[in-house]
């Protein structure tokens, strides 16, 4: 069963087409990474999922309910935040959660205390949010999202403003919630490494269009899509041989290293050519990271 489904979703702002014909299917129990560079349309998509922005075309359903027609049912089991969350700054974290809890049909004081503990804000719960650091606000963002014990968590760039330790904590927190509370998580990110580490599924979006979607394992292993790093000496000679043999340009060249997309089957042939031409092959490393894959995809699109 798909927890979130969109089909043919589009939205423009004036001349800018932010999201174009986007269809997504987020399976139950997945941790779904929504990956794209700045301005790709991630936040716009998430705003549409949550009913903040009305799509021009297309439909969205969450847990089987249309966000457009049955908004309240659709959002009933959803917790979310969008970019750097803002709160009622003159009020304490606890009061903020009380206010938001009333919109979730009444949340007990115990539950509020519980989520504050989960995100590690108990000691500062009665301070004004005004006095919070960005990292603390981000954690309060998670607290308000999980307040109503949702089955679906939709998070827009949950780690974007955090320092390395904060990022690690946030990732652990999200993974723990997904596991312990059985939530389906849909999270956007422009950090590929993050998606690779955390997610079971990924959709890549650029310039408003869906480029690829699938499980992380599928995309990483997709044949012909692996990036190899080939270390060679001398570089120039190797470059022309590799380009000719694979009929493609390298995605990156630096020092003695050439990164190029190739299928596994093509590699032995390349090595043979290189040695025949007296090029020293120092190393061939499969860089099957989503980062390279993603760069190759989005670069191919912008050029």
């Amino acid at each position: 069963m798909n927890v979130i489904e969109t089909s043919g979703l589009s939205k423009s702002f004036g001349n800018i087409r932010s999201v174009i014909d986007l269809s997504l299917a987020v399976p139950a129990g997945s941790i779904y990474g929504f990956l794209g560079p700045n301005g790709a349309g991630k936040s716009t998509t998430i705003r549409m999922l949550l009913g903040l922005v009305k799509p021009e075309t297309g439909t969205i359903s969450i847990l089987g309910n249309s966000v457009n027609r049955l908004r309240n049912q659709a959002l009933n089991e959803v917790g979310a935040f969008i970019e750097d969350p803002d709160f009622y700054a003159n009020l304490s974290a606890r009061t903020n959660l009380e206010i938001l809890g009333r919109l979730n049909g009444g949340i007990s004081a115990e539950r509020i205390a519980q989520v504050l503990t989960t995100v590690g804000l108990t000691a500062r719960a009665d301070d004004r949010v005004k006095a919070y650091s960005r990292g603390m606000r981000q954690r309060l963002g998670i607290a308000q999202a999980i307040l109503g014990q949702p089955r679906v968590l939709i998070l827009d760039e949950p780690t974007s403003t955090l320092d390395p330790a904060g990022i690690r904590d946030m990732r652990h927190l999200i993974l723990r919630l997904a596991r312990e509370e059985n939530m389906t998580v849909f999270l956007s990110s422009h950090i590929l490494h993050e998606v690779e580490q955390m997610c079971t599924h990924v959709a890549v979006i650029d310039h408003g269009r869906l480029i690829r979607a699938g499980t992380v394992a599928e995309l990483l292993g997709e044949s012909g899509k692996i990036i190899f790093e080939i270390r060679v000496r001398p570089l120039e000679k190797a470059l022309s041989i590799i380009s000719a043999e694979l009929d493609t340009r390298p995605t990156d060249v630096s020092g003695d290293s050439i990164k190029v997309a190739a299928s596994r089957e093509a590699i032995p042939g390349v090595i043979r050519r290189l040695t025949a031409a007296r090029v020293a092959v120092l190393a061939v490393i499969p860089r099957t990271s989503l980062e390279d894959y993603f760069l190759a995809l989005t670069a191919g699109l912008t050029e």
Binding site: L75, N76, I82, P85, D86, F87, L100, L103, Q144
Partner: peptide, 14 residues
């Protein structure tokens, strides 16, 4: 202006 609709209007109240 305060950005709080992002947390207020995403809940199951019309």
């Amino acid at each position: 202006a305060g950005g709080t609709y992002r947390i207020y209007l995403i809940r199951p109240v019309s």
